[in-house]
Design a protein around this nucleic acid. Sequence first.
DNA 1: AACGTGGTCAACCGCGGTCGC
DNA 2: TGCGACCGCGGTTGACCACGT
Length: 253
Amino acid sequence: MVRTPSCDENGRKKGTWTPEEDRKLAAYITKYGYWNWRQLPKYAGLARCGKSCRLRWMNYLRPNVKRGNYTKEEDEIILNLHTQLGNKWSAIAVHLPGRSDNEIKNHWHTALKKRATNYAAANSSDESSKKCNTNKNNKRKSSVGNQNASPNNNNMHENIVLESSQCSPKESSSEELSSYSTVDYQQKHKVYQEEALEEITSGSFWTEPFIVESFNSKIDLLAPSIDCGLVCPPSPFIGHEFLSSFDFDHYNW
DNA sequence: AACGTGGTCAACCGCGGTCGC
DNA sequence: TGCGACCGCGGTTGACCACGT
């Protein structure tokens, strides 16, 4: 879950992100966008590699990120898309706004994979006994239309979700258990995250676009950002007049 | 109460793709 | 066309936590 902080051979920090690092990264990206992940940590005052910053932003700090508490609809979407696309987590994530590929991947490995495997095993072991239960099954099938007319995997996953959510008290109880602990974890980290972002959140913070298009109109925000340790990027997004008027030698970059 | 074990999830690593020169 | 830099993806790791013994 949380890695012990350490440094690589370049002195760059690894492991757990601190609230201060989160604050710096979020503040920087919110003001300047992610113009170059490799260079970004240097200008944001972070002793991290670009990859680490990107990952942290995409999976945790990005606005509208949803965490934990997967709905049955989301599970169903993941299962269906996984059947179609395989382990293309980023492609699956496109269909689940607010969910990162990493989180979906984790959720698959921790919850859905097992469910799908169990279903597949049960399905294959039941193969021989199906013939004995045709009457019963036919009645059930008719209640959900003709979706089992072909061996479509999508339908298989729909069944997985429906069965686990409706008919299996054991499954649902374990789901409750896992979601409960997830909530606990979330609450703990929500505090952590709120703590980290408290200083930079002011009402419209997250609703403000962080994309670079808006930067020219917000050039007046640059000075305060520099005051708190951020350095503007050498990018076309920032006015050259502003840059030339600023004493960059004052900062260690 | 202490220990072992499995589940969970944040983060790291390595590889392949893309883009610019 | 070749090469290097960068990005994004997927697999894997490692630490914490909850639960069982």
